[in-house]
């Protein structure tokens, strides 16, 4: 019964259409071109994803935001506050597209979606972080940014992200050191002098390492222009020039 229901005969119809030229084979090169285009698109998306990730890492490094991770849980929360979430979201969307592209290939659809996404995310993280922390790729782009095409140059101008007033985070220059207190020049608002209350549990060696004229990263609660610090770190390699670039970008 079932077999009778499904008996059809379309062979002659199809062969007639083939013979008459109504249906024709697409040439092989069309498929080859499509494959090349898809591979190129996949590779391009992968490159952009790695580039954005390496930029995020570079931005955290050059802005010294990653130093916040050394201030315990509160430092971690402060790090999350200044993290460039927009770039990360863009990167995740790109990885999602990358995953969709790879599913057109045999090795892509054989993997469960979630695992493939995790593998891609890990690969982008490893290459992105490795490129920033293991090579001078980003530093050399930053140095040559004026000579690079404008979109890339402008992109790297944003790498050094300023601390925002009121968030309790600043790069400051020490003007005076008191008992449990510093008087500093606030780099966030060219030359403003503010007080910083040091944490009670600040290790003695860190306190003793502070000297007048040092540039320090301060993390804490900011109230009425006074920062109650929970973390302080000397930034010996902080280039004043970079601070100036940042200040210009804030108050321009």
């Amino acid at each position: 019964m079932e077999k009778e229901e499904t008996q059809i005969n379309i062979k002659d119809k199809i062969l007639n259409e083939i013979q008459s030229g109504d249906i024709s084979m697409r040439p092989r090169f069309q498929f080859t071109l499509r494959l090349i285009a898809l591979s190129a698109l996949t590779f391009f998306i992968l490159l952009i994803s790695v580039f954005i990730l390496t930029f995020i890492s570079f931005s955290a490094r050059i802005s010294h935001h990653d130093e916040l991770l050394g201030f315990g849980f509160r430092g971690f929360l402060a790090f999350l506050l200044v993290f460039p979430w927009f770039f990360l979201i863009v990167d995740i969307i790109l990885i999602f597209f990358l995953e969709r592209c790879l599913r057109n290939f045999k090795f892509g659809y054989r993997f469960p979606v979630f695992y493939l996404f995790l593998v891609l995310l890990s690969a982008v993280l490893i290459f992105g972080l490795g490129l920033d922390r293991g090579t001078s790729f980003n530093d050399s782009i930053l140095e040559r940014r004026e000579h690079l095409p404008r979109p890339i140059g402008n992109f790297y101008n944003q790498a050094n992200r300023p601390m925002i007033k009121g968030e309790g985070l600043c790069f400051c220059k020490i003007l005076a050191i008191g008992n449990k207190k510093l008087i500093v020049e606030d780099s966030r608002k060219g030359g403003t002098v503010i007080d910083v209350l040091l944490p009670n549990d600040l290790p003695l060696e860190i306190f003793e390492s502070l000297t007048i004229g040092d540039t320090v990263l301060i993390a804490g609660q900011e109230r009425d222009g006074v920062i109650e610090a929970f973390g302080i770190r000397n930034i010996p390699n902080m280039h004043l020039e970079r601070l100036e670039i940042r200040e210009q970008s804030i108050y321009r």
Binding site: I8, K13, I14, I23, S24, M25, P27, R28
Partner: peptide
């Protein structure tokens, strides 16, 4: 027939499958 359950024009659809197969056979 089984997959689509309520489709009448299955012959046309199967014909489309073969047309598509022929067009793409070089792939």
């Amino acid at each position: 027939r089984k997959f689509l359950s309520r489709v009448e024009d299955i012959e046309d659809m199967v014909q489309n499958v073969f047309i598509s197969a022929y067009e793409n056979i070089q792939n």
